[in-house]
């Protein structure tokens, strides 16, 4: 079994896993960070979105071995201690969630979006969010949260 090593939320981690282990299972089952969710397992829903070397990807459609040596950020890596990341705070204050299952992926996609596109308007947010599915909210408050969060992040 290959030993797969990477940096997750600033911490060096390593685990012996089968080649076929998906990145999401490596993070959840081997590193013990269960904030990243498995929703559909078919690359549709986006609940598993994490950042690999600064880019948002679906960790259910990435092998752990492909992320060997990478710098990975999960939802657990956003806050500074008790202080929420501005995007997390915006989701909380704008009620951008109901059941919360999709929220880790939503927030990780939103942070990537805000990092890469400035002056986000509603239409752009909706278009760029098409890799994340929410079955509760109807998206209105999610879009509002992302606009607010992006502004708090300086965009």
């Amino acid at each position: 079994m290959p030993t797969v090593s990477m940096t997750v939320n600033g911490k060096a981690v390593s685990a012996d896993v089968e080649s076929r282990t998906l990145l999401v299972h490596y993070i959840r089952d081997h590193i013990g960070l269960t904030g990243t969710h498995v929703g559909c397992d078919t690359s549709q829903c986006g609940a598993c979105v994490v950042h690999v070397n600064g880019k948002s990807v679906k960790s259910c459609s990435t092998l752990a071995v492909q992320a060997e040596g990478a710098d990975v950020t999960t939802i657990e890596g956003l806050a500074s201690g008790e202080e929420l990341h501005p995007m997390q705070a915006a989701f909380k204050e704008n009620h951008g969630l109901q059941c919360g299952f999709c929220t880790p992926g939503m927030v990780m996609s939103a942070v990537d979006l805000a990092n890469n596109m400035k002056n986000l308007d509603e239409a752009t947010i909706r278009e760029q969010l098409d890799g994340n599915i929410c079955r509760c909210t109807g998206y209105h408050n999610i879009v509002k949260s992302i606009k607010d969060g992006a502004e708090r992040m300086g965009g």
């Binding site: 979105v49 459609s61 996609s109």
Partner: peptide, 9 residues
Amino acid sequence: IGDRQVRNA
């Protein structure tokens, strides 16, 4: 193509 995450991979 696809969605933002698919385009990143």
